[in-house]
Write a protein that binds this DNA or RNA. Structure first.
Lengths: 153, 153
DNA sequence: CTTGAAAGATGGGGTGC
DNA sequence: GCACCCCATCTTTCAAG
């Protein structure tokens, strides 16, 4: 898919303001409504725009704790990886999960009500057949920044 | 702020589908439009809903590399922290930044076109007066999961 | 919480450049 | 490709009951 400056601008604006009206969007990118609308539709159909969502500030509704966790597995074959990854995907407390090179196999971000609840979750993982060899926990003391990619320079 | 089941349901739905119409939303939570709309407005004004945005699949539009970086500073006083944090906030390549307890001061996620570009960014940081004592880079080889909190159980 | 109503947006269509 | 009409239908927003 080939994107021009208009498309990038559309993405940039929609990323910040997903509920902007198509006419306002058209104004901002200096196109009229129809071509603008067709670009948006194209971006959605191509899967560049996967969907729209509200940014919910979790801090306003409940006390919670975030931790970052480095995890290494005992075994390094694809079934072990697959099992681990599917458990991560199915665990709502895990908000982010990345496979990494560089000493550990995975780095996760986990959100729970408190540290106890995190530790209980970890205990369940350790007791199950997930094959965790070792893990290291970093407690998040402050969230400085949280995602907003795409900024066309 | 006190949230009831309706509000949680609203948040859950809006998080997944931020462009749903208020009438559809009202249908789904089994309320009529106006009360539903007032709840949404209240959630927005209270800052529980911070905004709306398109979920953009960055992989569809450009090749890029994500790295996770652990950073420790030389000095641990608030001006050093503030300076570091403001640079992180102003650097678009940094998508996430967390202050942590547990051996390192910060953990970041950085997105660049390639590893070279990341390394150049790091070189700039090291040469500037940011006070980085040491850092460790984990290259993300696979993104397993990426954020979707709030799931009322 | 419900109804209702005005103002505006959507999603098409079509024409012409 | 784009812009500039039109138009029926739905949505938003805010009264008043």
């Amino acid at each position: 898919m080939q994107l021009d400056q208009y498309d990038l601008k559309i993405l940039q604006i929609l990323q910040e303001n997903g509920r902007i009206t198509k006419s306002q969007l058209a104004d901002e990118i200096h196109l009229s409504v129809s071509p603008c609308w067709e670009r948006v539709k194209k971006l959605e159909q191509a899967g560049v725009i996967e969907g729209y969502g509200a940014r919910v500030n979790i801090n306003k509704i409940l006390k919670h704790t975030s931790v970052l966790v480095e995890i290494s597995l005992k075994e390094h074959h694809s079934t072990a990886f697959k099992r681990f990854e599917s458990v991560m995907c199915d665990t709502p407390e895990v908000t982010d999960c990345y496979a990494t090179g560089g000493g550990v196999d995975y780095i996760l971000k986990v959100q729970t009500n408190d540290i106890d609840q995190y530790q209980r979750l970890m205990d369940v993982w350790l007791d199950s057949e997930l094959g965790i060899e070792r893990y290291f926990t970093y407690i998040v003391t402050k969230t400085i920044k949280q995602r907003s990619p795409i900024n066309n320079e």
